[in-house]
Write a protein that binds this DNA or RNA. Structure first.
Lengths: 189, 189
DNA sequence: AAAGTCTATATCGGGCCAATATATATCGGC
DNA sequence: GCCGATATATATTGGCCCGATATAGACTTT
């Protein structure tokens, strides 16, 4: 599955411009599942347009630059369904935040605390948006996914809140032995 | 942060071959935070070796192909710390599983159930490994991160288990109206 | 009136990664 | 004792992806 399928999926919920699709995939609800930026979306739309899976209607606007509104065609709908049918690839995640915490012994304690606090705030913010979202009329799948997001974010925020101080305390205690601390095992597997 | 920093990080916990680094980043504990395959790791190691951040010792083995064991140099250690100091980029996630569920109305119910069951099994498997891991001696950061992983996976698995049947039931109920169902709002933001 | 944000489209260089090639060893099952 | 599968080990490539950047008028804030 690639960004082309992502665009088809967004367009399934209604016509949109490239700009709006990007918003959905990098700020909106979908950004929690599958992110994408301009550099992926615009080329994808051009290709989809070329193969007839979407149509593009240029709309002149007073003042602002022209809008290009994309719509899913019947062929696009079929292509979306076909893509969704094949077994989903394994999740791809890349969390610099978590990776950095692995090495929290190498960072100043204040920095560690600051990062955790920021992350908690980020989760709380996401939770608020998701809860607001649940009030509206949604497809059953979207409802399920949103509920899942809430459950996971809640657990993450709670863990960070309840274990933050313990981590900092532990780091403080072993602070002075950091210099000669030998490498440890138990990360390789 | 890129795969070069990832390699430096893994090597901080002890010398390793490219093969072992890949194992840690695509099967081991680190794979839950930051994945990488051969195509990223081998070029990264070559570059790190060229700039003196790691050293490479070739070890002949009876039978098996030669091993190239990489070690972090002092310069590499400093480079790692410097990289970790800069604020972590936003998490990047790409979950085809979750994205697919958004459109569960377009999939056969049996398929939806199967995917959820597989995902639950995957979480449970990950949980078991992480819990085993916690028994061993670990750096405080690694312990914190592992605990976080357990909390999140547990919440995810529980949500899927308790809401699986509700989703399927809801899908079955609206099954016959799928054909003429209009596009819905509330995904754009 | 300057500075910043929002709508809107588009490109590029470099990074990443799945798939693939190569070679040998070991282990379980028949 | 042989076969297929799995594990050890390194390396390349084509294509996808994406952060940064350019452009540009309108609206908002200071």
């Amino acid at each position: 599955m690639d960004v082309k399928t992502l665009c088809l999926g967004v367009l399934f919920f209604g016509d949109a411009t490239g700009y709006e699709i990007r918003k959905a995939c990098s700020e909106g609800m979908i950004s929690h599942l599958y992110e994408a930026g301009y550099g992926s979306i615009y080329p994808a739309l051009a290709q989809l347009s070329g193969t007839g899976l979407v149509t593009c209607t240029e709309m002149a606007q007073d003042g602002r630059p022209d809008k290009k509104v994309y719509s899913l065609t019947e062929a696009g709908r079929q292509a979306l369904i076909e893509s969704l049918r094949e077994p989903p690839a394994h999740d791809r995640i890349r969390s610099e935040f978590m990776f950095g915490l692995l090495f929290s012994q190498l960072l100043p304690n204040a920095e560690v605390g600051k990062r955790i606090d920021e992350r908690i705030a980020w989760y709380r913010d996401g939770l608020e948006r998701m809860r607001t979202c649940l009030g509206h009329d949604m497809a059953p799948g979207a409802q399920f996914v949103t509920g899942y997001g809430i459950a996971v974010y809640e657990a993450a925020a709670n863990y960070l809140e309840t274990h933050r101080d313990t981590l900092i305390r532990t780091l403080s205690q072993s602070e002075d032995t950091v210099e000669e601390q030998p490498a440890r095992e138990a990360v390789g597997r």
